[in-house]
Computed example of a mutant assay.
Amino acid sequence: MMTVYKTDNRVLHEVEEMDPGVWIMMTNPTMEESQEVAEQYDIDMADVRAALDEEESSRIELEDGYTLILVDIPATEIRHESKNYTTIPLGILLTQECIITVCTEETPILQHFIERRVREFSTKKKMRFVYQILFRTAAMYQSTLRIIDKKRTDIEENIGGNTEDEDLVNLHELESTLVYFATSLRANGVVLERLSRYKRLEQYPEDTELLDDVIIENKQAIEMTMIYRDIINGTRELVSSVINNRLNNVMKYLTSITLVMAIPTIISGLYGMNVSGKWMPLSNTPYGFGIICLGTLIICILILLILRKKNML
Rank of each mutant, 00 (worst) to 15 (best):
V118G: 04
N233W: 07
L90D: 01
I215P: 07
Y141I: 01
R229P: 08
R119K: 15
Y5N: 00
G160P: 05
E97T: 09
I148V: 12
V275R: 07
P281T: 01
N248P: 03
P264G: 02
C98Y: 03
E166F: 12
V48A: 02
S241A: 10
I299Q: 14
V190I: 11
R10P: 06
N162T: 15
P281D: 03
N84M: 15
F135R: 11
I43G: 02
S241D: 08
E202V: 13
G269H: 06
L174S: 05
I257E: 08
D19Q: 14
E175K: 15
K6E: 03
K124Q: 10
E175V: 09
C300G: 02
N218Y: 09
G21Y: 02
N162E: 12
D47V: 07
I24Y: 02
S241N: 14
E105R: 12
T137R: 04
D167N: 13
P20L: 00
L62D: 12
V48F: 00
M1G: 13
V169D: 14
E206P: 04
E36N: 07
T123F: 03
A75H: 06
I306D: 10
N158A: 15
I299S: 14
M127D: 02
K83P: 06
N170A: 15
L185H: 05
P108I: 03
T255N: 08
T235L: 11
L90E: 04
S283M: 10
V260W: 02
E106P: 06
L211E: 04
I148R: 07
I267G: 05
E81I: 13
A262Y: 10
E61P: 09
L185G: 01
V48T: 02
F129S: 06
L185M: 11
R152H: 08
E54V: 14
I148F: 03
M127R: 01
K151Q: 15
W279V: 14
Q96W: 05
M312A: 09
S58M: 01
V22T: 05
R59Q: 08
L210I: 06
K150F: 06
N218A: 11
A187G: 05
D230W: 09
E173V: 13
C300A: 09
E77D: 06
I88K: 07
M25A: 12
K150N: 14
S122K: 03
G288R: 02
R200G: 13
L110C: 05
I159F: 13
D230M: 09
I257G: 06
K6R: 13
D230A: 12
R308S: 11
S240M: 13
R119G: 12
I114S: 01
S240F: 12
D44E: 10
E39L: 09
L145N: 00
I133E: 02
F181H: 02
T7K: 07
G91F: 01
Y271V: 05
R49C: 11
T183A: 15
K125T: 03
R117T: 08
G161W: 06
I109F: 01
K310L: 14
Y204W: 11
E77R: 07
